[in-house]
Write a protein that binds this DNA or RNA. Sequence first.
DNA 1: CAAGATGATTAGTAGATACAGATTGATTAT
DNA 2: ATAATCAATCTGTATCTACTAATCATCTTG
Lengths: 245, 245
Amino acid sequence: MNKPVTPKYMVVHGEILKRLKSNHYSVGTRLPSEESLAGTFKVSRVTIRKSLEMLVDAGYLASRQGSGYHVNCLSPQRETCLASFTDAVLRKGRVPGAKLIGIDVPHPDPPEDISDVFDAPVARIHRLRTVDGEPELLVSTWVPTDLVAGLAPDAFPEFGPDQSILRILSDRFNLAWSRACETVHPCAAPNDVAEHLGIAPGTPILSVACTAYDDTDLPVFHDQVFRATPIVFNLSRSARKTDPI
Amino acid sequence: MNKPVTPKYMVVHGEILKRLKSNHYSVGTRLPSEESLAGTFKVSRVTIRKSLEMLVDAGYLASRQGSGYHVNCLSPQRETCLASFTDAVLRKGRVPGAKLIGIDVPHPDPPEDISDVFDAPVARIHRLRTVDGEPELLVSTWVPTDLVAGLAPDAFPEFGPDQSILRILSDRFNLAWSRACETVHPCAAPNDVAEHLGIAPGTPILSVACTAYDDTDLPVFHDQVFRATPIVFNLSRSARKTDPI
DNA sequence: CAAGATGATTAGTAGATACAGATTGATTAT
DNA sequence: ATAATCAATCTGTATCTACTAATCATCTTG
C-alpha cells in the first residue's frame, strides 16, 4: 500500500490549470502575484514558481518580469497524432465523432511495416474520425493483443469526450507510453481511403504514422492516419529554449 | 553600453552543451553528479540543476533518481522548417548543399498568400537544398525588403555550415523571431517543382509553409518548402509534461 | 555461492532568504 | 497638462539548507 505521493508543485499545477479551464482566471487577465499564490496554496515561492513555469512552457501563461503572469490561451497544443484529436476539436468548439469501422483481435494479416514493429500478435482498431459529422481522419490503431485483453466495440463510443484513443488506452487498458516517433508522408489517396474521406481517389493526402514506446523501449501502439487536411503547428519560444539556431 | 549579463545557468548550460558536442562526455556515459558539477562550475546545486534540466527537456540528457544524468543523444531536434535543415543533415553525417535559383528584391508579383501576410514589399530567395548532391527541398523564403538591406547572392554559400537560412537571417541581418506557425499540406507536384526535385509531375509531395513573428507579432519571414520525403518527429516525455491526455 | 540486508551515493522535492532588474502607478516639478 | 522622478510591486537569479526516495555496490548470512 505505498501511496504514490504527488509532489506539491504537481497538485498546484493541476489546480491552477483547472481554474484556467473553468475561466476562474480568464484569457488576457493577470494572475495574482507569485507571493500571493504561494499564500493561497500554502506553499513556498519556489514551488509556485515551478508550477507556473510548467504552465508557461506549455503555453498557457506568459510571464513578464515586473509585470506578472498573463493568461495566454487555453489550447496550446501542437497537432500531432499524440495530441488528442478529440480534445483539439473540442477546443475549437466543434463536435468530434468516431465511427468504428472494425476491430480485429488479432488481425489475421498485418502489413509488413506493422509486423516489423511488433513481435507479438496485434489487434487493429479501424475508425473514421469526424468533425461536425464530416469525415476528417481515417485511423488504424495497432496494439499488441496481450496489452488490450477484453477489447470490444463497446470501448469505443461514437460521441463524447471518451472517444479519444489515447484516453481509452490509458484509462481502460492502463497503457502508458513515454516516447514516440511520428512521420508525415505524402501519398495519393487509395480507393478505400478516398471513399471513407469523401474525396476523389488519387488526391494527394497526408499519411501520418506514429509508433509509441514505453519506458523499456518496447512498442506499445502504432497509429496510422490518413487525412486530406493540413497539419498545423504553433511553435513558440520555448520550443527552442536550448540550442538556438 | 549596458552589457547584457548572461545568467549563470545559461553559461553553464552552454558549456555543458559544448562539452557534449565535443564528445567530452560521450553518448551512453554518465555525467558527474550534480554536487560535483556544481563544484566544477562554482555554482550552487540549484543552479546546476536548472542547466541540466534544460538539457533534459531538450532531449540531450536523461536523469534517473539515484543513478545520475545519462547522455542520451546529440541531435534531439524535431524536424520542422524552423529546425535548421543544414544542421539536421550534418548531424546525420551527410553533406548539405544549397543551389541558389534566384533572388528577387523586391519580388515583382508575390502570390496572394504572401501579400496577405506582409504589408510591405518583400524579397524572395529561391533555393534548392540538396543532400549528398541529391535534391531534397525546394525552398522559397520571403522577407520584407527593409529587413534585409543589401541582400545579394554572395550571402548564400552553396556549401558549408553558413548556408542555413536561419543563421544567415539572424547573423547577417540581425533578424530575430520568437513565435511561428507551421502548416503541412499534401499536394501534387507542379511541373516546375517536379523538375527541380527530379520527380514525376503530379507525384504527391509535402508543402510546408511557415511564418515566423517577432516579439511584437509582426511577421518577420515566411518559408515555403516543397519536399517529396517524409517529415520525422521524435516526441519525448517532455512534450507532454503538462496536460497529459 | 547466492540471496538478502546495508550503507553510500545521487537525484527529487521543498523551504527561507537576498538581491537584481523590469514594470507600473502615484507623486512632484515644470 | 505634461514630463520627470520616485517608490512600490513583481518576476528573475542565486545560494544555502534539509529531508526524501531511488539506485548501486558491497558486505553479510544462510
